[in-house]
Nucleic acid binder design. Sequence first.
DNA 1: ATAGGCTGTCGAAGCGCTTCGACAGAGAGT
DNA 2: ACTCTCTGTCGAAGCGCTTCGACAGCCTAT
Lengths: 337, 337
Amino acid sequence: MVTLAEVAQHAGVSASTVSYVLSGKRSISTTTRHRVEQSIRELGYHPNAGARALASSRSNIIALMVPLRTDMYVPVMMEIAIAVATTARTHGYDVLLLTGEEGPDAVRRVTGSGLADAMILMDVELDDERLPLLRGTDQPSVLIGLPADTSGLTCVDLDFRATGALCVEHLAKLGHRDIAVIGEAPAVYERHTGFAERTLDGLRSRALELGVRLLHRPCDGGYDAMAVTVARILDERPSTTGFVVQNEQAVEPLLALLRQQGRAVPEDVSVVAICPEQVALQASVRLTSVSIPAQEMGRHAVERLAAKLEGRGEDEVVLLEPELTVRSSTGPAPSAS
Amino acid sequence: MVTLAEVAQHAGVSASTVSYVLSGKRSISTTTRHRVEQSIRELGYHPNAGARALASSRSNIIALMVPLRTDMYVPVMMEIAIAVATTARTHGYDVLLLTGEEGPDAVRRVTGSGLADAMILMDVELDDERLPLLRGTDQPSVLIGLPADTSGLTCVDLDFRATGALCVEHLAKLGHRDIAVIGEAPAVYERHTGFAERTLDGLRSRALELGVRLLHRPCDGGYDAMAVTVARILDERPSTTGFVVQNEQAVEPLLALLRQQGRAVPEDVSVVAICPEQVALQASVRLTSVSIPAQEMGRHAVERLAAKLEGRGEDEVVLLEPELTVRSSTGPAPSAS
DNA sequence: ATAGGCTGTCGAAGCGCTTCGACAGAGAGT
DNA sequence: ACTCTCTGTCGAAGCGCTTCGACAGCCTAT
């Protein structure tokens, strides 16, 4: 391994000079800088991460805590993780991948050992047990998701309330008066991750404002569960002409079932999905959808964190504005045409 | 931050003794050990990662390089990544998440800086440009996937050749004489990731042995592309009664199209999928499939790496045995019944 | 001419840990 | 009784870097 000292010797300067060339924290004459850079290149020098971390008490690593379970929104998670990793690199950070498995202990370990300079937490529950720890440390952190109490925290999330409202609005505008909501799996509501409730809240309150009737049913992914759910909905409210689906695994089963029942999309029923763009585009019908901006969320989180690490940036809740893209799965309500 | 020295003082021993308690590299009397452990707990001590890395030249970090593109087998990637992270923890390692973006430079950076002790590479191409670097360093590494030349490398992968053979065998045993293979997207073959070719190879050679006719067509995910592909296959070989699908995004479109054409699964046609278990279970028909053992691959990779880091373990290619699970999408060929 | 302020460079201290060699004391073998 | 070996502990060196204060040399202002 090439060391700083070797580079210094090769360039005929002192070690500190090389260090200052690298960090830019003191002015260096152009000639010296060039000579040092030349030596660095010739010797193929890479600063030793451990030594750097020890001396500067900065590891240049951001910890990313992803949920352990792989049963939900996997593509969204993955996209966020990759966006975090690439954005972090552009700010000079690497990303440490932690799973939720260790829970709060992971936060203690990372904070205590100086392994990472900051953390990003995904899959935050409303009353997450990691939050007190985050509040109690001076290590910057950003949550992707929204807990119940956001005081002293920085959060990034899609504005799911507005998302719900947007879906109802779109369908109402097309003349639909009876809307069914195929929600997330019951387990998701039980876990209190918040986003599902917030969506529902947005859906309900806008429905109320617009005088639209709303029926909400949680639903596991998969065909069998969906068949039961759809049957029950149509039984209970035969006049239903609009559907909102939040569970991305439910999208395709829903479409298949509607087709099977002889209900054409979008002629007889309209479907709005809340899902990643890719899912909306690859479904059997190109779906009118509010996309989940995974990339943007990851990018945002890192940028907030980078700002905090540089001393700028306050605690703040950033709710990304939802955007509804009209595609081929929604149209005027049959009775209204 | 609590330091080793503070723990030592609190426990009334020297710093080195505390260090030896922590590492277990020298024998320590039970009473001393207990006293030290007590102090560690009371003070909430966590060893500083940077200092440790510097002094021992071991970072206890494994780098995981995931592909940048999120257009393919995302669930598989995610599952592998999570398995890697959790398995690594049980061996005392953390995981650094690198994206393919930086390419070979990332390998240089990580190796040169001592950021990680070892690497796991995913999405390895047949003639990957990172391979020479790996061979040229003494840093242990494991590939998930199989390059053309495996000399001096450790690789873990599903035995895709055997997987292909297994699929043909199963269909042949059921009496199918004309089998169509819906392959990966053309881009996958162009990228030479190897696994698609190896599967095809296995399919073809077993088909030849068993006297079964095989028709292979690459296919993008999505309904439109699939419609074209299926139409062309049935046009060219109307006697086709067996399908093998490798592209997990193609599974649902294929089923939908067959249904639409009035061909019942499994009465008229049989479908075997090569996909993660979850996909096979959640499809509209419970699919007979060879599952892609993502978890096992991740676990295996870490264990090989841990072995290497401890000095045990040779370079070796581990091909995981495929397993075919019969579900409801395959049955006797109609003419054979 | 001289004091004052820059600019660019250097030396040395120290970050918190691991690890090597040294060594005191206890037990075993003669 | 004396040496030899082992066990458990300690002190000190050093890992490779950052950073602080010092200072030489030069330029500008008086």
